[in-house]
Design a protein around this nucleic acid. Structure first.
Lengths: 103, 103
DNA sequence: CAAAGGGTTTGATGTTCATCGAACCGAGGT
DNA sequence: ACCTCGGTTCGATGAACATCAAACCCTTTG
C-alpha cells in the first residue's frame, strides 16, 4: 500500500469526544503531563492514585478521542499527545485547556 | 460596602466544571447560540428537541460553572454568556471551543 | 522455553447524569 | 383577584461512566 494512506493515522474525534475526554480530572492530568513532555511518555508516569486498569481505561478514551497514540519504545508502552493534529482540527482548544490547567 | 467587592459577580467555576459543562451537546449548542447573539437570549430560543425541565437543568449547570447568568428582561428570563469573565479566567478556552463548534 | 513485568480486557459495582412528567412558582395581563 | 404563560424544582427512571479486582496477553529477560 502507498504512502497516500498515511493520513489515516490522524483521526481526531468529534469536538464532543475531545471535550468529554478533557473533562475528567484524571485524564486532564495525563494530558497535561504529556503536553509538558512534548514526547512519548511511559504509561506509569502519567497517573497517580488510580488503579492500573482504571488508567488503561482512561488511555483508551483519550485514544478514541484522537488525542493520543500508543507508541512502543524498547518494549515499554508510551502514550504520545497528538498536539499538532488536534491543534489543526480544533485550533486553540487543546493548547488553551492545557494552559488553563497549568496552575 | 465599597466597590472593591464587585468582582464577586464573576465566580467562574473550576476548569473541570467548565469543560464538563461544554462537553454536553445540548449545552454546547446553547453556548454557541449565546455566543452568536453576544447579548442576553430568551430561554426558549436556546434549545430544540428537549423538554423544558431538561433545558432548565442544563441552564443550571451552565450557571453553576459560571458560564452564564440569569437576566430578567420584560418579565422574560434570558441567559447571558459571560464571555469576558470566562475569557479572562481561562484565556482562549471558551472562544476556541465556540469556534470549533461553529461548523 | 519459562518466568516476570507492564498493559489491556472482562465483569461487577456504585455513582453520576440526562431525561421526562408533574407539581410548583412568579410575573403580567385580563 | 384570577388566570396564564414561562421557568424552576421534585421524583423517578434508565443509561453512561469511573472504579477496582482478576484474568489474560505480549514483550523482554533469565
Amino acid at each position: 500500500m502507498p504512502a497516500s494512506e498515511l493520513p489515516a493515522t490522524s483521526p481526531v474525534g468529534t469536538l464532543q469526544q475531545v471535550l468529554a475526554a478533557l473533562a475528567d480530572p484524571v485524564r486532564l492530568e495525563m494530558v497535561h503531563r504529556m503536553a509538558s513532555a512534548a514526547a512519548p511518555v511511559a504509561c506509569s508516569l502519567l497517573y497517580d492514585g488510580v488503579n492500573k486498569s482504571t488508567a488503561s481505561h482512561h488511555f483508551k478514551i483519550l485514544r478514541e478521542a484522537g488525542l493520543t497514540e500508543r507508541v512502543m519504545i524498547g518494549g515499554q508502552t508510551h502514550q504520545l499527545l497528538l498536539s499538532d493534529e488536534v491543534e489543526s482540527t480544533y485550533p486553540g482548544v487543546l493548547s488553551s485547556v492545557v494552559s488553563a490547567a497549568e496552575r
